[in-house]
Design a binder for these strands. Structure first.
Lengths: 124, 124
DNA sequence: TTTTGGTTATGCAAAAAAAGCATAACGGTG
DNA sequence: CACCGTTATGCTTTTTTTGCATAACCAAAA
């Protein structure tokens, strides 16, 4: 019953799912894929994002299985020990999310801002 | 690697959180509150929504603690065994969500629809 | 005054999910 | 053909979620 928070705000998530409602991927994996693309390594990417390798590896495997195609191409060995790069479809999916957020985010933030004053009137 | 799903779609969630990012409530609790309002009973509401009483009761308690005020007023005993009604602030929060979705949903669905064709081009 | 009945309240056990540790498998390179 | 850094994966531990069981409550009826 003790309210230490100053105010309330609105937030949102957008994601891709199958026609039957099974989650595929959202902002987190989108950022992850971009980091993989930039680093060329799954290990480096998860460390950069603060994720655990074990879980992320499993998540990506599940996503690809649900999609029916690969988002990343992994290889072991070599000078650098191994590497991970995006597939063509992976690249296109990242680009899609880029455009999606460019499209959605500004409008949504504007709408939220308008409603926020009303929201915080309620709690006072 | 077997894709049984026909196509992909976009989905989203909107919710209220504290200034520090602690979740308060989203669509599920919004609907729950409306059902409580309509039935006058927490028990009836959770059954109608397919939720478990135990968890829902705990969730509502947590939400109220985070908000710092009550959303529902509960009483035990009496002819009907007890009842639960929305407080004034609870009513206002429900009304806020009503307006929020009226405002957001149509625009978002339209934007989604435009992008969906692009998305499904990727997977083919 | 006592019983009744349907609701709210909550402890506790069981099941499921997530996190994290440890270690194997790889394979190009020197 | 040994090395090294990465990918791959089993398994244990921890955390979270579910769900069962049962107490507490109290206005009205008996």
């Amino acid at each position: 019953m003790d309210r230490t928070e100053g105010f309330l705000k609105l937030n949102y998530k957008i994601w891709i799912e199958t026609s039957t409602g099974v989650n595929i991927l959202g902002e987190g994996k989108w950022q992850l894929l971009k980091t993989i693309r930039d680093t060329g390594s799954l290990k480096a990417a998860v460390e950069k994002m603060g994720y655990t390798y074990r879980q992320t590896w499993q998540n990506l495997k599940n996503i690809e299985q649900r999609l029916g195609f690969k988002l990343i191409e992994k290889s072991r060995g070599g000078e650098k020990g191994g590497e991970t790069v995006l597939t063509a479809k992976g690249e296109r999916l990242v680009a899609f999310f880029d455009r999606l957020y460019d499209e959605i985010e500004p409008r949504l933030n504007e709408a939220f801002e308008n409603m926020l004053t009303d929201l915080n009137k309620i709690v006072d």
